[in-house]
Design a protein around this nucleic acid. Structure first.
Lengths: 224, 224
DNA sequence: CAAATAGTGTCTATAAGACATTATTGG
DNA sequence: CCAATAATGTCTTATAGACACTATTTG
């Protein structure tokens, strides 16, 4: 009756060279051995309390990432997606700053730009596209993109991240207003970053938003 | 390795007596035989092409509902939710007008108000709450609630549905504007409904939105 | 004709965007 | 002092809400 193959996959996203990248791993087993694919695997019934737990474990073991922003994306199931038979993949997505990934990444993992991705096994292409769409649409209304920034960041840096995700410029004044409205970041006392011009105040995500989102009703639209 | 129990459950929602109701069925098997629970079941690997297909079949066979608005909600998985062991339920939600459900419903099915629901087996309480929250939050931005209206409806009737879902009154002018903006409904030529006062124009969902949503960026907020 | 409900016109309030201005650094 | 960037002030524009008014029915 229950011949369903049940796995957990993770779409690990980060920003690198001003573009969204996904972490892929060379599969060491059939089917599709040797192909780049999403990190994933079977549930360990004795070890994983739930699917988020399994996704965490996979990220830890396969990519060396320990406490990313992690959320369930949805389940991709059906008869056609896996040559072994009817299967269900509980897909998740994770966001981490590039710094974290650079430090932790095992050599087997590759970061690939999400735009123009192709040749993925199973329906991993669809899963990645769904994750990217989800992240983009949530970005408009929430603090989600902040999880792609490092531990400390300036508001202009954060705005750049939002702009990269949404693919269009944001009005600077509106962005400052939005950051105040979401109330998710706090100044790091006496910490500034200077590159060229006036030094920028450094901020960090408030503790209570490290793994939760701050939402707003109002969209952050395009502007100059 | 893969001892995971994989099932599909459906949260079938409708409006009845001005309140959101969920369809529950008395379970005929262990565990929890005799208890009211969400309609659900195992995937039929030979019959169901994917999880939506399985959800459709379950609705058809258990509730006699044939083409509702149906969407995946998410997967509820873990070691603790089912006494038989580690399990994953791919949950879906469906919206139908009350008229459809009244005509189709088998006697084994009961409609229960979603507010104050309790005593459900497994984590079905959580699944229902998640579905209701999802429907409510999507309602603000989309044509979703129209799937709870009958085939033909007046704008004031539709507004009432939105108000019931969101739990607060909506500004009448804003609502008319929003309906125009979403562009998902069309007048039924020369069809009006009269109860008391000026007859109201009847509308229907445009064909292209029968199973898809029309979204807007702007929220529909409370008003008089 | 009064009451009720549908539908619209229009003013006001609010929030977002444009743009200018000030602030503060390095060269 | 100039160029560059951060941060903020403020005017304009767009959109939502309030409210009144017209339209059309029933009793």
């Amino acid at each position: 009756m229950n011949s369903v193959i049940c796995t957990v996959d993770v779409v690990l996203l980060t920003l690198k060279n001003n573009a969204l990248h996904v972490a892929l791993i060379k599969r060491d087993r059939e089917p599709f051995a040797g192909t780049l694919a999403l990190p994933g695997g079977f549930v360990h019934a004795e070890e994983d309390r739930d699917d988020l737990d399994a996704a965490s474990r996979i990220l830890r073991d396969k990519a060396g990432i320990s406490s990313p922003y992690l959320e369930q994306l949805g389940t991709f199931a059906g008869a056609a997606r896996d040559p072994r038979g009817w299967s269900a993949s509980i897909a998740h997505y994770a966001l981490v700053p590039e710094a974290v990934i650079v430090k932790a990444l095992s050599p087997a993992v590759q970061l690939v730009p999400v735009d123009g991705l192709k040749g993925l096994p199973f329906d991993h292409q669809l899963i990645v596209e769904t994750a990217v769409t989800r992240v983009r649409s949530k970005s408009t209304y929430s603090s989600l993109p902040a999880h792609l920034a490092g531990e400390q960041f300036t508001i202009p840096q954060l705005q750049k991240i939002y702009e990269l995700l949404m693919g269009e410029p944001i009005n600077k004044v509106s962005f400052y207003r939005k950051m105040t409205e979401l109330a998710m970041i706090e100044e790091v006392p006496d910490a500034f970053e200077t590159t060229r011009g006036k030094p920028a105040q450094l901020y960090r995500l408030k503790k209570e938003f490290r793994s939760v989102l701050s939402m707003t009703d109002r969209a952050l639209n395009a502007g100059k």
